[in-house]
Every structure is written in C-alpha cells, then in structure tokens.
C-alpha cells in the first residue's frame, strides 16, 4: 500500500508570489525521503503540495505535475479531499482532537470513510494503529481518556496512529519531532524505520542528524534571498548527500557553515 510520487517542474504560488520554483523529484515507495534546508526555503510548502494541504491558505496554487502512480494529483477532476485520504500528514506540533478520547482520535479518519464501523472492527483498527505507532502498551488501559492527557511524544505518536489508521499510500511528516524531547524523538525515529516497510514517507526536518539517521534519500532546498523562490538544489541517496554532495551550498549547509 505504498506508492511512488513523481514531481515534475512544480511551482508553488501564494497569490502572485512565487514561493517554490521548479521542483522535480522522484519519491520512492517504501523509503524515507528527507527534505532539508534553511528556514523559509519552501520545504514545508512543497511537502504540503503533496497532499494539497497548501490550499488551506487563500490564494495558494500550484503549477506543474505531481503524479502518484500514474494519477496527477492536480488533474482537474481530482478532489483534494480524496488526495488527503491517500496521503496522510503528521504535523510539527502534536494535534490530537482535544474533544475526543484516544480511541476516537485514532478512528477519526476511519469514521469519515465508513460511518457505520462495527464495534469489533473499530477496536481492531484502534489496536492495530496504536501498535503500529508503538503506543499501544502505553495507552491500552485508558483508551477512553482524552488524547490531550498524553505527553507530547505520546500525542505525536497518537497523531501518527490516527494517520495510519486510514491506511494511506504516503505519509508526510512536517518536522514531526521539533516539539519533542530527545527520548520521544528517538521513539518517533524508530517508528519511522518500521513504518517505511509499509508506507512511502516524506519528512521535513531541521535536524540534519535526524535526516542522516532515518532517511534513504535526502533533498536539499535553498533560497537565494528573501523574496526569492525556494528551489531544490540537489537530491541523492542520504549517504552520498552527507559524504560527497555535488553542490558546494549543500556541503556548506550540512557542515553548518550557514543556515
């Protein structure tokens, strides 16, 4: 249930402002692709174009193609709601629904597709998803408690459980560990290496060791200056990127010389 995404010459605009220019990349299935780069270089913006979440912002639009297994996500007949059911997302700050219990949080997406899910199926989905997110053992005795009663790291894993409960093709993660402590970060990173057996994962991170640890391929974005569009500078297998990048700017960035 994981698919590849081929992005061809993608431009992202906010109104008249060109935010990201000319991105082409292949995102391989069953692997982790990391997007790195300085703040404001458009990596989060680009990530959001992969499930059309950028459309939440008025005036945001995309030119170019993003093809998931032969289907252009931006074809006129494509419904963004359906795209998001195939391409799940985990956000920077954990955002479980505070008004729902832990179990209901996991089922939130499932219930959108299938209103009359039986009790047994619901319990199975909750357990499977929470196990998938390495959270089951910690919360199995308090599934009816509010999601906001968990710690930050647990909340983030709950959000991952919620995202994988609908069995998406692709999982996007927008700096999923930046609001977490090192222990929780480690838990999420371990989880990512398990999840990539089943899902295509794209992660935005500011933490270069994290990119080096978890990803198979790394893409470096950069920006020439304020007001300029962000661009994909280079993309390669992660070991190559971190040992012998072909562009000097990449080396400067990952060795900490700027950004």
């Amino acid at each position: 249930m994981s698919k590849r995404i081929d992005v061809e010459n993608l431009d992202v605009y906010y109104g008249d402002f060109l935010a990201v220019e000319g991105v082409s990349m292949a995102i391989e299935p069953r692997s982790v692709t990391a997007l790195i780069g300085p703040s404001g270089c458009g990596k989060s913006t680009f990530l959001r174009t992969l499930n059309r979440m950028h459309e939440v912002i008025p005036g945001a639009r995309v030119e170019g193609r993003a093809v998931m297994d032969g289907q252009d996500l931006y074809a006129p007949e494509v419904d963004p709601v359906q795209v998001r059911r195939q391409v799940g997302m985990v956000f920077q700050r954990p955002n479980p629904f505070p008004t729902m219990s832990i179990a209901d949080n996991v089922l939130a997406g499932v219930r959108l597709n299938n209103k009359r899910i039986s009790k047994g199926d619901a319990a199975d989905t909750v357990e499977r998803s929470l196990r998938g997110a390495n959270l089951w053992n910690e919360v199995k005795d308090r599934l009816d408690k509010p999601g906001s009663s968990l710690s930050g790291g647990q909340q983030q894993r709950l959000c991952i459980a919620r995202a994988i409960a609908v069995e998406p093709q692709v999982l996007l993660m927008d700096e999923p560990c930046s609001a977490l402590d090192p222990i929780s970060t480690l838990a999420i990173e371990d989880l990512m290496s398990e999840l990539k057996n089943d899902y295509t994962i794209v992660i935005v991170t500011h933490n270069m060791q994290q990119a080096a640890r978890v990803s198979d391929r790394t893409a470096f974005f950069n920006i020439a200056g304020t007001g300029q569009p962000g661009k994909l500078i280079e993309m390669a297998d992660t070991p190559t990127m971190f040992s012998s990048p072909s562009v000097p700017a990449t080396e400067d960035y990952i060795s900490g010389r700027f950004g």
Binding site: P38, N207, A212, F242, S244, Y253, G259
Partner: peptide
C-alpha cells in the same frame, strides 16, 4: 569530505528547530 555533522547541532538549525 564532510562527514555527518555530529557537533554543534544548534548552529546548523536556523531559527531554532524547536
């Protein structure tokens, strides 16, 4: 060439990752 950076993570994180 530059190996994986292991020190001074902070300086490489623009605007603070946290």
């Amino acid at each position: 060439m530059t190996p994986v950076p292991t020190s001074s993570q902070d300086s490489t994180v623009p605007g603070g990752g946290q």
